[in-house]
Computed example of a mutant assay.
Amino acid sequence: MNKILILGAGQLGSRHLQGALQSGLPLTITVVDPSSESLNIAKQRAEQVSIFNAKTTVSYELNLPKSESFDICIISTSSPVRAKVTANLLANNKVRYIIFEKILFQVLSEYAAVETLLQQHNVTAWVNCPRRLYPSYQQIKDMLCTQEVLSMKVSGSGWGMACNSIHFIDLFSYLCSEVELKATENNLDTILLESKRSGFYELTGRVKFMIGDHSLELVCRDSDEVTIDVSISCNSKTIAINEVRGVIKVDDCSTELELKHKVKYQSELTGLNIDELLLTDNSSLTPFKISCQLHTPMIELFLEHINKVLNKELLACPIT
């Protein structure tokens, strides 16, 4: 049996569990969370889906296991404890593969520390930024000319700039097939919004990043209404994606094409991720080292801005 460990049974962890139950392979799944309430929610959500493989079993634990071996561990805890949880996991167990949730870590030093830890324990890891798995974005990547300079803009309201920018940064890197990200402009608003989660902040305003000559602009306004418009342009074409309405419009100067964009929920993806890893020893998700390169300029920019607004010298960027 393939052994799967899910650390963190909250909103996202419970969706990972639903997805894992859709795997075609027989799995022994262990879900760990120090909160009985979170485990109960995970149990309820597991009962909402059909188990694809009749041999798959699920157990729920309050404490991290010890002296066990796991094929895949999904770490979906909150960002402040993720590095510590990873260290405790690897100090007491053997793990082949890890899928990390994002944002990865709040503290910049933890990126190198966890990378070293993974190397020491011979663990291969990826980060769950799944837009690169969406068929619509894979189709868009095939449309783009690799020799042309790419300009990408994400604009809208209420989409959670602090916690979700990394999704679009990752998509940007995927589309231009490069990773050397630099923050070039900071026009974030000086009012910090309190996140739905206590102790965390949300951001609004405008920022810009570059990878080589390729540019990414992120704009988010404060609103209860969620709108997300993605525009991608190069010399030969312009592509507009309305993520909420699920519409893609492609203009290549001579013709216009309209396609459908479908958001893939985590409960639809995790089983596919598990199957791919177990069957091929590889994943289409973002490799951990690449994701660290994409995370750190963003964390540096956000942390500097938050410290300036709060007039503090925080080491941990309070976003999740």
Rank of each mutant, 00 (worst) to 15 (best):
C253A: 13
T56K: 02
Q106P: 05
T280W: 05
G212L: 08
L117K: 05
K55F: 06
I211G: 06
S177P: 04
N242R: 09
L301C: 01
R197D: 06
I72D: 00
D170T: 09
P34W: 10
S59W: 06
V114A: 07
L171A: 08
A20F: 09
D252W: 02
S151F: 11
S254E: 05
D189L: 06
D252V: 02
A240I: 15
Q106A: 11
T270R: 04
L27K: 00
N2Q: 06
G199V: 14
V244R: 14
I74T: 12
I239S: 11
F52D: 10
S223I: 15
C317E: 04
A46P: 03
L108G: 00
T146N: 07
D71V: 05
R15V: 01
N307W: 12
K84R: 15
A83E: 13
L7V: 15
V154E: 05
A183V: 00
G24A: 07
V114R: 06
L62K: 15
F70Y: 14
F100L: 00
L269F: 02
M210G: 03
E37I: 08
N122F: 00
V179L: 03
V309G: 05
A183Y: 01
I6R: 08
L277W: 08
E256P: 02
N88F: 07
Y60N: 07
Q11G: 12
S109R: 05
T28L: 07
E110M: 10
Y134G: 08
T57V: 11
L175W: 09
F302P: 01
I274H: 02
N242L: 12
N164L: 11
E276T: 14
I166A: 02
